[in-house]
Structure formats: structure tokens, C-alpha cells
Nucleic acid binder design. Structure first.
Length: 746
DNA sequence: CTAAACACTGTTTTT
DNA sequence: CAGTGTTTAG
């Protein structure tokens, strides 16, 4: 009925309305950061339903499960009770593979292997191929295979193209790896896209089926799709070409995992009759923030030029904060947040801290504890990656998929059942020669002469246990997990342990039960397999609790799609952001991606944006000089404000010198050119506050230890330390300010 | 077969 | 410096 949907459009701009109502044919929505994209997408789905499109004919693809859930909620609020399919690409792939399991010659209860699992299979594949894996690490080879799959390169094709020694080696491992996965009835992350994509290419019947089923397709974050995802999108839009993709090339940050920015840049070429809608008005950030972020991204060469505009307030300049050390940085950032909240300026939940690398969250964690500021580190997987939880999950996986040999190996002797390495090796070779999975080989344990005594009894007991537990598979996941931790003796093992950490581990394992219970509340009919799938396909942000009043800490990658009134981006330093590994790329593509990464982080901020860096940063146990990121120099002077927060003289003093890059001593840090990735071995005469200027290699005399040679100097001010190797007493560390030394002339 | 000591190694980002 | 994998002793 005409008019019924009008209220869906009432509060939208003309451009947004166009994006919502243009339902037929290919549509490209270029949505700048903060342009109300989520709103447009949900309205569009609701609009389709209003226009009479059947829910079962709509497919919406999001980047994380969390955004899928949110979208489902929002659409449901607009059109209650609809059954629109909203999923991530990986979850869609898993769904297709399970539904059409027979066509893929799969058992529908397949296990999804994560990167860790993948590397273990790669390792055994390397061994099976008789290759010395010291040269080619499973990690590296696994990454290469993953990349190949993302580009839809089959093992056969890969072997054809292999030219150098490394690729030829991978070419040998790749088919073995795939075979092993199949034997275990397991899929890795890439298979979830790769297999459906290839099938859509070769199996016309399947393709036509799915195309007709998903007549209206909507893909969010299209700039981060890879080749397999692209293929899936295209093949599902042949007969029904109602493909709507939404994205922003400036926010493409997953190139390293195969995402191809060309997918969005070339969309109009792929679908010549594409309508393009630009959403360029920003409703999120202040003019200052937008101006700064816009100037930064202008430095990218491969880019569609695009202005960022907003009607919002001017706001305050972007704050660039310089600290002496990474420790100070964490300390002061948390302290500032605490003060702002105490001053009733806002709540903890209004603030987010973004970091380039997870390692940086460690120092933050202690600062939060020190100031008792509530926080959450958004790293969902961490919980399920704990050893104890992985152990329990291995049991669960084995219950669902008996052929999962990896999970068999993990669980068979945990808790200890007297089944050791050698017995397992016998079992394995028996299984191999009889072409059985380990579970089935276990059935014949009495006929394997090499396994006897404790090991044989243990294996029999294990098999019996698994069979019994498998009888519970129809129960709620929560019940099964409870039974597993009880009946396997896992609980008892932890309970009776005298290692105090084991009580925490027990609590974690029991938390798993709670997680399953929660899952069942949200998905009442879901099986244990569904629960396992959800866990493995979960992203970090999926575990983010946006209800709690606490500061959120996450990586820049995880921050995509979110917004916060106050944002801190930490360690904006050369080597970290841009990351040093991105600088090895000569084309500069990777550096541009790093710039986009900072751009994404900056554009999350609504009111206040802080970019921080330190002069010294502890890295892998040693202290290194840190140079402010070159990206900071790309920000316009009229949108930023520098603050040096230093405690040189023992007390904290804040002053905003080196503003505008004038020739102040602090500025010299930008030009020292010290390689942040290597230890500092020069005397660094610029640290003029120190009374004595020692240098590395210098020969000195100490009152007590005698003659020695300076091997290292690092640190700053009162923290400045040096190492001296003495002829008689070995290496000692001193605080430069305190130690009394005499220089020995050469 | 298990546990504990040991050396080694390697650090972006994630579905 | 930590987490992993390997060696060694019980």
C-alpha cells in the first residue's frame, strides 16, 4: 500500500531516502564515516518488507555478528516478527555448507577450525609431506594457503602457478592440508567462503537456487570484502540483480587478510547500470575532528576525492599528547578520564581507547586497576582461548563431530588417563593404515598389539565416556557442558589441584556453562553445534558489552562501525602506527592502509579526540626511543593542539610548547631518526638535561667494580639507565643520574 | 607416563 | 618478557 512506508522516510535526507527506496537493480551506497549508514541500511530492509518483498528473499550481510544482531533488533522494531536473514559472510557460508552438506560431500556436523587449529593441521601436513618445518613455519605456510583460498585458487591451480621454491613447497602442502581437513570433517575459516564461492561458480543449479532465494541482497562494509566474498555476491545476483552494497573506500582496513578495495572501487564497472548514492554528510563528529581526519586521509593517493562535511559544532581541537614513557601515557590517560568523569563531564562509557596492537593494552590494564576506573578490554576470544576452556570445547567438538581428530588428541588425555605420546602414535598409525579416524581406531584398541596396559584401559574408558556423553547431544548445550566437565573428571582434576590458579580455571570452565545458558536464552532451539559455531565465528566486538558504564579498550580494527563521545588513540608512533611491517611494502599500499586505520579511529570520535604518543616505549623487555608518527605531521595546524605532559623534574608539568612545530627542544625528537625497532646504541647528545653524557662503547671506571665498557644507554631524565660490562664483575645496570663514574680516555 | 625444568623464539591487525 | 615446545629426571 502506498504511503504505509512513508514514516520510514520522514526523518531522512533526500540522499538517505534515495538509498532506502532504490530497491531494484544494483546500487552502490558510498557512505562516509558517521553518515548515518546503519540507519539507512535498517530502514532499507524495513522498506523492502513494506513494499511487499518477502522476508525470506532478503539477505543482509554485516561485518560482525554483533552488528547483525543489532540490525535484526532494529529491523524488528520497525517490522515486528520478520524472518530476514542477517548474517556475516562466514556465517552465511557455514549455513550454506550445512544446508547443502550432501552436495559438498560433507557431514553437516563439521567442525570449524580456527587459526590455531589450522596451524596444527598445517604442521602435520608439512610432516606428512616430509618437509622440514623449521624453514617454513606452519604459521607462514598456513597464511599463504589462506591467502590462496581467499583468492579462490585451488590446490591444482596453485601448483601450476608455483614458481619459486617457497610456493612450490606450499603447493605440496596445500592439497594434503585440504585432504586432512576433509578427513576430519572440518572447515577452516576460509573454506566457509571458498567452498560456497567455488560451488556457485561451477554448480549452476545450486547457484540459481540460491540466487532465486536471495533476491534482494544488501552488503555492508563492502570495502572489506575479499575475492571469495565478491564471487558469492556476484553469483547470487545474476538472475536477481538487486544487489546493494554499502561502504567507504577510506575505511578499508583489511587488505592484509585478502580484502580487495577494488571490489568497491570497481563496482560500477562490474554492474554498469549501477545507481550510486553518496552519503557524505557527517552527523557524528565536530568540525574540528572532521577537518583533522579529512586532512589526514587526503594524503592517500589511491582514493576517490571526497569532502567530509558536517553541520555539527566546531568543537575543540584534536589534542596531541606527548608523554615521557609508555607507562606515563597509560597512567595519565586513565587519570584524565577519571578526572573528567569526577568533574561530571561525562560517564566512563562515553570514552574509548584505541590501540594499534593488542600488546599495548597490558600497561593500560594496570593503570585502570591503579585508579580503580572500570574498563573492559574488548577481546572476546580471549575467554575461549584459555587452555581450560579449549580443553572443554575439544570434548564438545568431538561429541558433535566424531571425526575431529584434533579435538580427539586434545581431549584424550586431559585429565590424564595414562594415554601417552607413544600409545597415541601407535593409535595414529593404526588409524592411518586402516583409513579410520582416531575415534573409530579406538574401537579396535584391543587388536593393536602395541597398545597395552594403562594406555589401553585409558583409551577404552575414554571411548566409553565419549559414547555416553554423545547420548546427551539432544539436550541443551548448557546441560551437555555440565555433564562434560563432571563426567570427564575435568572438574575434579581442577578442584583437587594444589595449584591456586586452578581454582580460577574451574571458575572459567563454569563460566562456559553460563555462556551456553545465555546462548540458549537468545537461541532457544539451538544445538550444541550451533553454540560451537557461534563461539568460533565470534569476533572481538561481539563480546563487547555496551551497556556497562566503563571505558572501552580495543584495537583500531575492532573500532570500525562504532562511535564514542571521547576517543583516545594511543601510541601514535612510527613503527606502531604506521606499523613497521607495513613500511616494508614498497608500493606504499600498506602505509595507506595504516593511514586509513588512523582515519577510522579518528572518525569514531564525536566530541573529543586525543592522539597520544610517548618518547620512550618498553618493547619486548627493552626500552626504545619512539618517534611521533609521521601521520601527526599530516594534521592541519588549525585543528590540533599539542601538549607535552612531562615529569622531568620529578613533578608533572603540562605546557603546550612545540605547538606549530616551532624550534623547541622537544621537536628535535621528531628528527632524531633513531630506528625505533632497534636498540639505542648512540649517546643521543640531545638529552641535554643529563649532566654526564656517556655513550655506548665508552670505557669507564667505577669505584667499586673497576674498569668496564658501556654497552647500553636508554631511558630519559631520571629514568635514564645504562649497562656496563665490567672486566671482573660482568654486566651491571645503573641509573645514569646516580652512578659515579670516571671516563677513561682511550 | 608424567611433571618439571629448560631453552628457545618471536610479536599487527581477525573471521 | 612470556608463551611455547622440547628435553630431562622421576
Amino acid at each position: 500500500m502506498e504511503g504505509t512506508g512513508q514514516e520510514l522516510l520522514a526523518d531522512l535526507t533526500p540522499a538517505q531516502q534515495a538509498a532506502v527506496t532504490q530497491i531494484d537493480g544494483p546500487l552502490l551506497i558510498l557512505a562516509a564515516a558517521g553518515s548515518g549508514k546503519t540507519r539507512v541500511i535498517t530502514r532499507r530492509v524495513a522498506w523492502l518488507l513494506q513494499q511487499g518483498v518477502r522476508a525470506s528473499n532478503i539477505l543482509a550481510i554485516t561485518f560482525t555478528n554483533k552488528s547483525a544482531g543489532e540490525m535484526r533488533q532494529r529491523v524488528d522494531a520497525l517490522v515486528p516478527g520478520n524472518r530476514v536473514m542477517i548474517r556475516t559472510f562466514h556465517s552465511l557460508g557455514a549455513n550454506i555448507l550445512r544446508q547443502y552438506a550432501d552436495r559438498f560431500e560433507l557431514d553437516r556436523n563439521f567442525t570449524i577450525y580456527d587459526t590455531d587449529d589450522r596451524n596444527k593441521i598445517v604442521k602435520s601436513s608439512l610432516e606428512a609431506a616430509g618437509l622440514d618445518n623449521s624453514q617454513f613455519t606452519p604459521d607462514r605456510v598456513g597464511g599463504t594457503i589462506s591467502k590462496a583460498k581467499n583468492q579462490l585458487i585451488t590446490p591444482v591451480q596453485y601448483a601450476k602457478d608455483a614458481e619459486d621454491y617457497y610456493t612450490q613447497t606450499v603447493a605440496k602442502v596445500y592439497p594434503i592440508y585440504q585432504k586432512k581437513l576433509r578427513e576430519s570433517n572440518a572447515m577452516d575459516f576460509d573454506d566457509l567462503l571458498y567452498l560456497p564461492a567455488l560451488a556457485l561458480r561451477t554448480n549452476e543449479e545450486l547457484r540459481a537456487d540460491l540466487d532465486a532465494r536471495f533476491r534482494y541482497i544488501l552488503i555492508d562494509e563492502y570495502q572489506d570484502t575479499n575475492q571469495s566474498q565478491y564471487e558469492i555476491a556476484r553469483k547470487l545476483s545474476v538472475d536477481y540483480r538487486n544487489l546493494c552494497v554499502v561502504g567507504d573506500p577510506d575505511q578499508s582496513i583489511y587488505g592484509w587478510r585478502g580484502a580487495n578495495i577494488k571490489n568497491i572501487l570497481d563496482f560500477e564497472r562490474d554492474f554498469p547500470d549501477t545507481r550510486v548514492v553518496m552519503l557524505d554528510k557527517n552527523y557524528r563528529s565536530t568540525k574540528m575532528i572532521l577537518h583533522a581526519a579529512g586532512s589526514l586521509i587526503e594524503h592517500n593517493t589511491q582514493r576517490k576525492k571526497k569532502a567530509l562535511i558536517t553541520d555539527n559544532d566546531t568543537g575543540i581541537p584534536v589534542q596531541i599528547l606527548t608523554f615521557d614513557t609508555g607507562l606515563d601515557e597509560a597512567d595519565q590517560v586513565v587519570s584524565r578520564i577519571k578526572q573528567a568523569v569526577a568533574a561530571k563531564k561525562h560517564k566512563y562509557r562515553d570514552t574509548a581507547i584505541f590501540v594499534r596492537i593488542n600488546a599495548l593494552t597490558r600497561t593500560l590494564e594496570s593503570a585502570f586497576v591503579k585508579y580503580s576506573v572500570p574498563f573492559q578490554i574488548v577481546k572476546g576470544l580471549a575467554f575461549f582461548e584459555r587452555k581450560e576452556n579449549k580443553d572443554v570445547l575439544a570434548y564438545l567438538r568431538l561429541l558433535v563431530n566424531p571425526r575431529d581428530d584434533l579435538s580427539f588428541m586434545r581431549s584424550v588425555n586431559e585429565p590424564a588417563r595414562g594415554v601417552g605420546k607413544t600409545s597415541l602414535e601407535h593409535l595414529r598409525s593404526f588409524a592411518e593404515s586402516h583409513e579410520l579416524c582416531l575415534s573409530d581406531a579406538c574401537e579396535h584398541v584391543t587388536s593393536i598389539s602395541a597398545i597395552k596396559g594403562k594406555a589401553a584401559t585409558g583409551l577404552k574408558a575414554f571411548l566409553k565416556l565419549i559414547k555416553e556423553l554423545r547420548g546427551l547431544l539432544e539436550h541443551a548445550p548448557e546441560e551437555i557442558i555440565k555433564a562434560v566437565i563432571e563426567q570427564t573428571g575435568y572438574k575434579e582434576m581442577l578442584k583437587s589441584s594444589n595449584d591456586p590458579d586452578d581454582q580460577d580455571r574451574l571458575a572459567n570452565v563454569e563460566e562456559l556453562v553460563t555462556a551456553a545458558r545465555q546462548f540458549s536464552v537468545e537461541n532457544p532451539a539451538a544445538s550444541l553445534g550451533d553454540f560451537l559455531e557461534q563461539i568460533t565465528l565470534a569476533s572481538d566486538v561481539d563480546a563487547w558489552d555496551d551497556q556497562q558504564d566503563c571505558v572501552s579498550v580495543m584495537t583500531l580494527h575492532s573500532s570500525k562501525g562504532l562511535e564514542f563521545p571521547i576517543v583516545y588513540v594511543m601510541a601514535v608512533e612510527e613503527g606502531i602506527l604506521p606499523h613497521e611491517r607495513s613500511l616494508r611494502d614498497t608500493k606504499g599500499d600498506e602505509k595507506e592502509e595504516e593511514r586509513r586505520l588512523l582515519f577510522v579511529g579518528m572518525t569514531r570520535a564525536m566530541k573529543e579526540l586525543n592522539l597520544t604518543h610517548a618518547r620512550l616505549r618498553d618493547f619486548r623487555g627493552q626500552t626504545l626511543y619512539a618517534i611521533p608518527s609521521g601521520f601527526l605531521n599530516e594534521l592541519p595546524e588549525d585543528a590540533i593542539e599539542h601538549h607535552v605532559v612531562s615529569r622531568h623534574a620529578g613533578r608533572t608539568i603540562a605546557h603546550d610548547t612545540w605547538r606549530g612545530g616551532n624550534d623547541h627542544a622537544d621537536h628535535a625528537w621528531e628528527e632524531t631518526g633513531v630506528n625505533p625497532s632497534g636498540p639505542v646504541v648512540t649517546s643521543s647528545a640531545r638529552t641535554t638535561t643529563d649532566k654526564a653524557d656517556y655513550f655506548s662503547g665508552q670505557i669507564v671506571q667505577h669505584d667499586q667494580y673497576g674498569i668496564g665498557q658501556v654497552t647500553h644507554i636508554n631511558g630519559f631524565g631520571a629514568l635514564r639507565k645504562m649497562k656496563i660490562r665490567f672486566v671482573q664483575h660482568g654486566e651491571k645496570t645503573f641509573i645514569v643520574d646516580k652512578v659515579k663514574l670516571k671516563a677513561v680516555p682511550k
